[in-house]
Structure formats: structure tokens, C-alpha cells
Design a binder for these strands. Structure first.
Lengths: 367, 367
DNA sequence: AGACTCGTTTAAAGCGCTTTAAAAATATCG
DNA sequence: CGATATTTTTAAAGCGCTTTAAACGAGTCT
């Protein structure tokens, strides 16, 4: 039950310290001007009163809010990860962030509006689904940074990973392991899928051959992944690929599930690679080889893009492309001859169990 | 590149509509007073100008901020779920929320301070780790609602699930399936663990017998769960429990992983129940039977607790205890002799007996 | 001593909105 | 129709802080 004896104001500190509010304001913000003795008495007074500035008033008075707005899908582990790093990066640069979650009942447009109400000075949009024109319109009146997605919208800064290169990494890894028939489980319509698909196509063409390209319709959910896996499995065994690269980790998860239910050993009967290196991929139960988009680097780049505009007056849009890297875990291995799994679960379940997966290079994530 | 021609202010709308700012303010907030014609012209003017109120100024001017502060572990799926529902519930009551994420570099204390800086009128703390005295101290000056955890701190509202009853549900379910030796993988020190452990103890005593109680040290992480599983497996086979109830889903995940690595079939060789019914549990690859804390209900109750204090002037602390329910999935089954079964979920499934304990919900995996 | 610095301090004018108290306009009534 | 009650409108005083421009002393120089 809050005691309503209104908390101390700047004026209270001022009168207690025997100076003007202007001096107090200056001292408290570490601005030059006030003498040492003034500083001391102000600081003392503030401490004694337990003074804490009212950000609202402060924001109103100064032009700057020093606020970065972030929209995110709060149920996305990848976004959560980015957020942590964004928070830290913003902190370092003296910015505060306000988060606007996307939920069933709150689409991206609303989330952005909410951020604007808070008078955020820049918007960091995690994996925005807004159209390019919408983004461009937004960017007319605000600083906007699109994260994790290519955007052909004038004026918006973009920070993303080279998804095509990421998929190429996955393909190369599989080829190294000996795979020659590698399928790609496509994602949903959109620029991200297109880029990853292209990366897959060119890598396979280059490393295996043009006729080895196999793109399976998929999506970004487990169900979509599962369906894709089923489709692949229905292929005649001779032609069945020995490895699958999925659009993202969730789809990969669906793939894994389907494979296991169908009794296909992983990675013995089929290698699987995901994308995002989400925490789910890292779960011991999943242990999915995946492509990491280097979230820390993205976060830093995004915050930097925003603060550069705000503080250094940059006005040209930037397009930061980061190199992804592959995190090898237990779902990829040589396209070995089917091994008998000693401890089948619900039919068959291979993978990382008993014994180690041979040529699997373990690699910690991180920059 | 934002055009700096400062956005329209209340005054601009006023002059355009040919009325005073006071009228505009009234109209825009739907307050009674202004006549229909005034309303219309104001609304028109506002629309034409693309006016959007400056929340900062608004907040400063009125006493109320209508802001609820939420601290959360952004990497917790359970918290993310709660958040969605909190957002919705707050929305409905005309409150906005500001989220303060806990990260590696940002502990609960800091997160709370940040919320206070935003002048939140109430704090909703998701699974707070603050001590009771700390909570009580906070509650002296602010409205605080602790969610998901018991709190013996004066003045703080508490919204939580009856964890003991939840664990009892799990035990009853297992007993129904035929299990007689059910171990509990304990959680970390703290009130939550204590409550769940107690629920386990009394349920086993009641349904099986006092000497069937077996509590294994554990924790709240996968590693802890894995270790606990290893410990259980090292038991001589005769005495080895046939089912494990874990402190939470993460620990359960670790348990599952260990079991599978050790070649123990699930649920054939061992049934496993988690706690939280987190999205992870719902993954098709995991398909974990788990106890749900009914996050929607918690969210609503929490928001209600806060708004009651703010709007209805309630001053007594409340302690809302919600009934959890069991979500049965694929990791529990009869303690039968291992069967080879492609669809383990097709197998036996019991109903909980205990009449007074609430719902047991069967729910398909893979949301 | 007066004219001029230069380093400190502060009075006062906002920031954009809400709200109160009072004025203005309109309606009601004997 | 003047007086009173009622509904609408508005001028103006903040909300708590920042910031500008002016004021103030204390040195420095001629």
C-alpha cells in the first residue's frame, strides 16, 4: 500500500541543499558548471531524501527521450536472445529500451504505435513482417532498423545475416560428411525463404551438381516440417536424400519428430540441419546442428545503427550483413549404413545416444 | 530520416478545430462535457493533422500513468506465455504495460528500478526471486503482485497455482496407471520447491504408502534433471522407481535426455512428468506430460489484483491460489514391460481418481 | 577605480498535456 | 422577460524537470 506522501522533487532537493533547482538538475546529470562544493551538497541532499528523478518530467523537458523501441515476438526464443543483447548494447550507449510484444491480439502495427506513444527515438523491429512500403512509410517519420530481414525500403537500416551463406555452410558441412543428396525444406513465402533457398541452390550446384537440387515445400512451423519430412520419406528409398536442411529450427524439429516416429535414425538414416541456433536446438534432447545468425553481433549492430543516426547524425541508410556460422551438434553425421539402434524408443530412435557420433565437431556458439 | 517539423500538438488541433485545448483534451479522451458538434470538429481536426497525443506529457499532467510494470525472465517460455495474457488483460482494463526483462546483466532489483522510473503504478513480478523482506519493503511504497510464487511479505498480493495440488495430480495420474514407485526430482532451494515437494510427499503417502516416498536432489535446469536421472538409474533395478515427477519441464527434459541416452524407454521403462506445461513440453519431439499452472487465469488474476488496488482502492493483500491441471501427453504410461510401439501415446492412459482435484486435460502435442 | 573578463548560479520560460475554477452560452421557469 | 439552473467552453495554473539567458561575484587589466 503505497504511501502517497509524494516523493521528493527536484525542488525539495534544491531547497534542502540551499541552491536552485537548476543547479540540482545540472549536478544530478553530471553536467559541467556547478562547483565542487555545490555538487557535494546537492548529492548529499539527494541521498538523504532518497530522491529519484521523474523520468516522465525529464523526458518532457528535454527533447531527447533516449529510448529505443523494440518490437518482438515474445514467444520466439531467437528474439528473446536478441533482446538480451540489445538491452546490453543500449545500456552501454546510455539508451533505455521499451519492449513492445507482438501477441495474438496485438499485431506489428499496434506494437509500433505503442512504441511511438512512448516517444521512442528509434524503432528496432525484430523480424518485421511489415511490407516494404509500410516500412518505408514508417521510416519517413522515424528512425527504423529492421533486424534479421532484408528490406528494400528506402531509409530503413537493415541488420541481417547472410542467410544464403548460412545455408551454404550447412550444405558444405553435409557434403564434407559425405552426403550427395541433400534436400532443402523450404520456408514460408517471403524474402527470407527466398534467400535461404537461393543459398541452398547455389551451394548444391557448386558442391554436388545441378541435378542434386531438391527443394521440398515446407514452412516455419513444426507441422510444416513434419509434413515435409513425410513427403521426403515417401520418396522411393533409392532416391531419398540422406540429409535435410530446414528453413529454421522449428521446422527442423518437426522433421526430427517425423523421422523418429517413422523409425528413421538420426543422423544415421538422415542428417538434419536447422537454422537460427535457437535455444531449442541446444537442448540436450534435441541437439540439433544449426546455423547461428550471431545474435550478439546483430544486436550490437542494430543498436549502433540506431544510435549513429541519433547521435552522429548519420542520414544514409545502412545495410549490415553479418556472417552466420554453423554450430555442429548431434543431428548430422556421415550418411552411414543404417545401424541397429540398441535402445529404440517408440520404434526407433537413433542419434546422439550411447557412443559418440563420429566425425561430429562440437562447436560452442558465440562470436 | 524523421522529418523534424515537430508533430502536431494539442494546441494545433485546438486552433484548427477552433476551440480551446481543454476541449480537445476532453474530447480526445472521451470525457463528458463537450457537445456533439465540438466533438465532431475536434475529431476531424485531429484526424486531418494525424495527431497523436504525447503520452509523456499526458502522464506528467495527470496523476495516473495507467502503467503496469512487469518483470520477467525473457528467456522463459512460461513467462512469455504469462506475458501475452497479462498484456491482453491489461488492455481490457485500459492499462498499458511496460516490460522489464531480467538478463545476465540486469537483475531483478535493477529491473524493478527501471519500472519505477517509468512511474508504473503497480509491479507484476513474474516468479520473483527477491526475498520476502525485500518484497515487503517494495510493497511499502508500491503496489506489488508476486506471480507464481508464495510470498510471506506483508502487503504484497500473490497469485499462484496450488503447486502441491499440481504435483498431487501428477502422482495420482501415475498411480492410476499402475505405478507404485514414483520418485520426485526436487527443485532448487526455495519456497516453490518446498511446496511441490510437500505435494509429492503427501500424495504418495496417501495413495501408495509412506515408505514409497523418494525425493531425489535436482534443480531447475536440464543439467540438474540429467544428474538426477543418472542418480535414479544407478539404483538397483529392483528398487528403481518406474516414474519420475520433475520439479519443472526443464529438469524433466534433462531427465528424458538422460534416460534416452541410457537406453531407458519412455514411457515403457520410465514415465516422466514435468511441471509448467511450457511450450517446450508441447513440442512434438518432447511431448511431455506436464502440470499446467493455467497461465491465462494467473495473468487475469494478477492484473485484476493490481487494478483493484488502483481503481477500487482495495488495500488488503490478497492471495489468489489457482488450481493447476494435468496435461497428459506421451511420456507417461503404465509401468508395463517394454512394448515396441510406434505410437506410444496410443497406449494406456488413466484418469486421475482423486475426486476433489480439478481437471485433467488431455491435449494433443505440437501446438 | 572602472572596464572586462570568466566561472557560477539562478530566475524564468517552457516541454505538451490535464484540470480546476470561472466565464459564457443555453435552457428552464415563474 | 428577468432570474435561476444547466450545459459548454475556456483561461490559466500546474505536472517535475531542463535550459537559456541574464545576474552575480571575483579576479584581471589599464
Amino acid at each position: 500500500m503505497p504511501s502517497r506522501p509524494s516523493r521528493p522533487r527536484l525542488e525539495d532537493v534544491a531547497s534542502r541543499a540551499g541552491v536552485s533547482t537548476a543547479s540540482v538538475s545540472l549536478v544530478l546529470r553530471g553536467q559541467p558548471g556547478p562547483s565542487a562544493s555545490t555538487r557535494e551538497s546537492v548529492l548529499d541532499a539527494a541521498r538523504e531524501l532518497g530522491y529519484r528523478p521523474d523520468r516522465t518530467a525529464s523526458l518532457l523537458a528535454r527533447r531527447r527521450t533516449k529510448l529505443l523501441g523494440v518490437t518482438m515476438d515474445v514467444s520466439s526464443a531467437f528474439h528473446a536472445e536478441l533482446l538480451e543483447d540489445i538491452q546490453a548494447a543500449a545500456d552501454e550507449r546510455g539508451y533505455d529500451i521499451v519492449i513492445s510484444p507482438l501477441t495474438r491480439t496485438r499485431d506489428e502495427r499496434r506494437a509500433v504505435e505503442s512504441l511511438l506513444d512512448f516517444r521512442c527515438e528509434a524503432l528496432l523491429l525484430l523480424g518485421p513482417t511489415l511490407t516494404d512500403p509500410e516500412l518505408a512509410a514508417l521510416a519517413m517519420d522515424h528512425h527504423v532498423v529492421a533486424i534479421g530481414r532484408r528490406a528494400a525500403a528506402a531509409g530503413v537500416d537493415v541488420v541481417r545475416a547472410a542467410d544464403d551463406a548460412g545455408v551454404a555452410l550447412a550444405v558444405a558441412h553435409l557434403v564434407d560428411l559425405g552426403h550427395r543428396s541433400i534436400a532443402f525444406v523450404d520456408g514460408p513465402r517471403g524474402p527470407i525463404s527466398a534467400l535461404r533457398r537461393r543459398g541452398y541452390r547455389s551451394a548444391v550446384r557448386r558442391l554436388v551438381g545441378g541435378d542434386a537440387v531438391l527443394v521440398v515445400p515446407g514452412g516455419s512451423t513444426e507441422d510444416a516440417g513434419g509434413d515435409a519430412a513425410r513427403r521426403v520419406l515417401s520418396t522411393e528409398t533409392g532416391e531419398r536424400p540422406t540429409a535435410l536442411v530446414a528453413f529454421n529450427d522449428r521446422a527442423a524439429l518437426g522433421v526430427l519428430d517425423r523421422l523418429r516416429r517413422e523409425g528413421v535414425e538420426v543422423p544415421g538414416g538422415m542428417s538434419v540441419v536447422g537454422y537460427d541456433d535457437s535455444p531449442i536446438a541446444r537442448l540436450a534432447t534435441v541437439d540439433l546442428t544449426s546455423v547461428s545468425q550471431a545474435p550478439e553481433a546483430m544486436a550490437v549492430a542494430a543498436v549502433q545503427a540506431a544510435t549513429e543516426r541519433l547521435d552522429s547524425g548519420r542520414t544514409q541508410a545502412v545495410d549490415v550483413v553479418l556472417d552466420p556460422h554453423l554450430v555442429v551438434r548431434g543431428t548430422t553425421g556421415p550418411p552411414a549404413h543404417p545401424r541397429v539402434d540398441v535402445f529404440p524408443r517408440a520404434g526407433a530412435r537413433g542419434n546422439t545416444s550411447t557412443g559418440e557420433v563420429p566425425s561430429t565437431v562440437r562447436q560452442p556458439p558465440g562470436l
